[in-house]
Amino acid sequence: MAMNPALAAAEQITRTEARNFYYGIRLLPTPKRQGLCALYALARRIDDIGDEDAPLETKRTALGLVRKQLSDLDASTDPVLVAVAETSRRFPVPLEAFEELLDGVEMDLRGATYETFDDLRVYCRCVAGSIGRLCLSIFGNGTDPRASLFADQLGIALQQTNILRDIREDLLLGRVYLPSEELRQFGVHLQLDDAGALHDPDAKLAAYISFAAERAERWYDLGLRLLPQLDHRSAACCAAMAGIYHHLLLRIRDNPTAVYERRMSLPPSEKGRVALTALAKAVLPV
Rank of each mutant, 00 (worst) to 15 (best):
S71C: 02
L73C: 10
F21V: 07
V286Q: 14
Q160H: 12
E217C: 04
G174Y: 11
E181F: 07
I25M: 14
G24K: 05
G174I: 12
D48R: 09
T77V: 10
G104Y: 02
L27Q: 03
D78R: 05
E182N: 01
D152I: 01
M3F: 05
Y123S: 01
L102G: 01
L249M: 08
A41R: 05
T58Q: 13
I163E: 00
C124N: 11
D231G: 12
A8P: 00
D72N: 06
Y23M: 11
G50I: 10
A2W: 12
E96C: 00
L192I: 13
R33W: 08
A41V: 07
D118F: 01
G111R: 08
A62V: 08
D170F: 03
L279M: 12
P5T: 09
A280R: 15
E86I: 15
V122W: 06
V188A: 06
R26S: 02
G35V: 13
L109R: 07
L134A: 07
L227W: 03
R67Q: 08
F186P: 00
R146N: 06
P31Q: 14
R26K: 10
A282T: 10
L81K: 03
G187R: 12
L27N: 02
A9S: 13
Y260M: 08
Q153W: 04
T257D: 12
Y260F: 15
T77H: 11
R15A: 15
Y23S: 11
A235W: 04
R165S: 03
A54Q: 14
G223D: 04
A275S: 15
L173C: 08
A6E: 13
L28F: 11
D74M: 12
E17T: 14
R262H: 06
T77D: 14
F139T: 01
L42F: 10
G111C: 07
D166I: 04
D202L: 14
